[in-house]
Amino acid sequence: MGLPGADIMKLVDHTILKPYSTKEDVRRVFQEAVSFGCYSICVNPVYVSFARSLVDDAGANLRVCSVIDFPFGAMDTESRVEAIARAAANGADEVDIVAPITLVKSGRWAEVTRDLSRVVRAAHGEGLVIKVIVEDAYTTRDEKLKLYEIVATSGADFIKTGTGFEDREYASSIGNRPGAQADNVRLMAEVANKYNPSLGIKAAGGIRTLRQVQELLEASGRPPDPSKFRIGTSAAASIWRDVSSGRA
C-alpha cells in the first residue's frame, strides 16, 4: 500500500489480553502504544481503570478499549450489557465483544440477532464504539455469511475477525485456520458492502508484520482510516520495526 509509517500505526489497537498480564505489562504496552502512535490500548476489564489513568495522566491521544465476554462469547445477554456499562464507567472509549458463539453454533439465529442488537444499543447508549468479534476459526462458511449479515445490520461500528485465543484443534477439525485470514476479511467486506457499507473491519489474531497489515487492509477494501479499519495485535513493536526499516 506504500503508506507512511504513521498512517499504518494509527490503525493499530495495541493489545494486552493474556490472563497472566500484570500492571507493569499494561504500563509497558501503554508506553509502546504512545511511542508508536497507535490508535488505542486494548485491555482486559480488570485493567480498564488503570489504562484510563495512564492515558489521562500522560495527556496521551490514545483511546482505551475493553474486551467483553472474552474469549468465549458464552455469557447471557444481560451479563454482557452489565459488563458494557461497567467498562464505560471505568473509562473505556471502545468495547470489543465476542459474538454469542454458543448460540451461533446452535443455529439459534433469532437469539443471536436479539443479543447483538441489545449489546450494540447498550454500547451506543454509553457513547462507546463497539466491535463485534465473530471468531472466524469456529464457523463454517454458511455460518460466517449469516453471522456477518447479522453484525452488519446490528448497528455495530466494526466487525472483527477473532480473539487470538482460538482452539486450534477445533478450528482444524472444521477446515479453518486460526488468526486473521485475508479470505475472511474479503468475505466480510463483501457482506458489509451489501448490508452496511459503513461497517468498519478489524483484523486480529497472529498479525506480526507490516506485510500482513497491508494484505489485510487491501482485502478489506477500506481506506487507511481508524474509523474504517483497525488491526488488533500484541506485536505492535514488531510491526513498528518493519515500518521503521522499510520492510514490507
Rank of each mutant, 00 (worst) to 15 (best):
P178I: 15
P178N: 10
P178H: 08
P178W: 03
P178K: 07
G179P: 06
G179K: 08
G179W: 04
A180S: 12
A180E: 10
A180L: 01
Q181Y: 00
A182E: 01
A182C: 00
A182G: 00
D183M: 04
N184S: 14
N184D: 15
V185S: 09
L187F: 10
L187D: 11
L187E: 15
M188R: 12
A189Q: 09
A189M: 05
E190P: 12
E190L: 15
V191M: 13
N193T: 13
K194Q: 15
Y195I: 11
Y195F: 15
N196F: 10
N196C: 15
N196S: 15
N196R: 14
P197F: 10
S198N: 14
L199D: 05
G200H: 08
I201F: 06
K202L: 02
K202P: 04
A203Q: 02
G205H: 11
G206N: 06
G206T: 04
I207F: 09
R208M: 05
R208E: 05
T209C: 08
T209G: 06
L210V: 01
L210P: 04
L210K: 14
E215I: 11
E215D: 13
E215M: 02
L216V: 00
L216S: 01
L217D: 07
E218Y: 07
E218N: 00
E218M: 00
A219T: 02
A219V: 11
A219F: 10
S220L: 08
G221T: 06
G221E: 02
G221S: 06
P223Q: 14
P223F: 13
D225V: 11
P226R: 05
P226T: 05
S227L: 13
F229S: 02
F229W: 02
F229R: 02
F229V: 03
F229P: 04
I231G: 06
G232Y: 11
G232A: 12
T233S: 15
A236N: 05
